[in-house]
Design a binder for these strands. Sequence first.
DNA 1: CCTCCATCGGCACGTGTCGTGCCGATCGAG
DNA 2: CTCGATCGGCACGACACGTGCCGATGGAGG
Lengths: 213, 213
Amino acid sequence: MTDTPATPRRRGAARTEELLRVTLDLAAEVGYAGLSIEAVARRAGVGKHTIYRRWPSMAALLLDALSLVWASNLDYRDTGDVHADLREQFLRSSHALASPPIGPIYRAVIAEAQADPTLRATLHERFLITVEQSTLDRITRAQHTGELVAEANLEFAAEVLCGTLYYRHLLSTRPIDENAIDGLLDMFMAAYGTSTRTRVLCPPPGPQRPDAM
Amino acid sequence: MTDTPATPRRRGAARTEELLRVTLDLAAEVGYAGLSIEAVARRAGVGKHTIYRRWPSMAALLLDALSLVWASNLDYRDTGDVHADLREQFLRSSHALASPPIGPIYRAVIAEAQADPTLRATLHERFLITVEQSTLDRITRAQHTGELVAEANLEFAAEVLCGTLYYRHLLSTRPIDENAIDGLLDMFMAAYGTSTRTRVLCPPPGPQRPDAM
DNA sequence: CCTCCATCGGCACGTGTCGTGCCGATCGAG
DNA sequence: CTCGATCGGCACGACACGTGCCGATGGAGG
């Protein structure tokens, strides 16, 4: 009797999870517009107090809802090929960013964050920092294996990589397609890669590297 | 008697300019919050109709107001040193982005653009594209003078350069300071620069380039 | 099993903005 | 001077905000 969603009446704190799911559903169906506390309350058949008791603002609710579905998008694979791993991850992330549940909510949070420095800090700390750190970890490993040059300031590199994707998503009409990602990665590898494949103007000084096979 | 701003009563189309100035003042004083059509109308002592007759929405008004003060921030100098010119321009732009009249308005437009794809397209076309193009022009010139490698895809480079600045401004709590700009430019020059100063791991193959003088 | 109290859904309020409609005053061109 | 477009002012209904109060519901402690 614990999983008959027909008329489970009401509960204590498990209602929190239900409200988050309702928020995700609402975002997926009606998008950014129509994302309001009143709408969530109506949709969930819930008094507004039930929401305000848990989250101080719509933005806080959206942040928690976003956590529910965004966490799984942060793991880079490590096949030993940074370029390939970054490419795969960027493709996955950009697809998630553009898709229904995550896309509208992320947009809504970012929009509200423009009006509220505190929210902006929270958003940065809980999501963007995490994304950058995840990227930094992967490329730092690549640095250790010699795929990237040792002297590179990879913190900036991670920020540039992530920032470019978000920039295109937020302020551009262009999609984040394979073209964009390849261009971005070409620049990244040209700057920090040790392979000579992409650095046409700077051939190896001697018979050091016959360019793979 | 055309320039006594004491009580010029009312006018025809010159009122448009006055409304734009009021919008800028309002943004400078009260910031993002309190930027509403009603607020502008109240501040200007104007009926809301007078605003709605000229702009279909607050966002459209903000776009025009932004044009008034943002246009002057797009000219790159050309001293023959790309790195220096980009650095100077980025410093100027980031300072403008963070300062009162432009900062809040830009933030407001971007926030509203998240809810309206059409507005996003207009914003991209009228501002971001222009910024990117201006950057692209400058680095293309640098490519022609040999400061940058010939094979580089500079369109992506321009997008990455501008995008990183906007990303930090919109989604980060970190300021766009000299550190950030230098890190960004280091990556850019490492990827596309022909000088060997920053490319430690890839020395010139022979006596081809004794490093400038 | 029953009592008690935190939590619930529902309703209402006052505030603020939105976009629109209508009014009479004001202006500027003809 | 006339007349029509534009003006400021006011009001409206709709919507979301955040808060307050109500009676009921239901789980924890006795």
